[in-house]
Amino acid sequence: MKTEQSPLQKPVRVINIGLERFAEDLRSADIPVIQMDWRPPAGGDPRLIALLDRLAEEA
């Protein structure tokens, strides 16, 4: 493993998916962060999600 590949060497910049409080804590520590507006895919319907995933794989 090369040292430059270490995940510990990169500056921390975060995409936050879920609890906004975690993004706020990072922001207040001056860490670049993007809060996603995450919602359950396909209205949360497991059958539709599986279908979407299959379509994506085929594509």
Binding site: P7, K10, P11, V12, R13, V14, I15, N16, I17, G18, L19, F22, A23, P32, V33, I34, Q35, M36, D37, W38, R39
Partner: peptide
């Protein structure tokens, strides 16, 4: 607040980590 991961990465192209909760 982007809805898509691809869009989020356009706004933070050097993102190193995703925090999922």
């Amino acid at each position: 607040r982007p809805r898509m991961l691809d869009t989020a990465l356009k706004f933070l192209p050097d993102a190193s980590l995703a925090a999922l909760s």
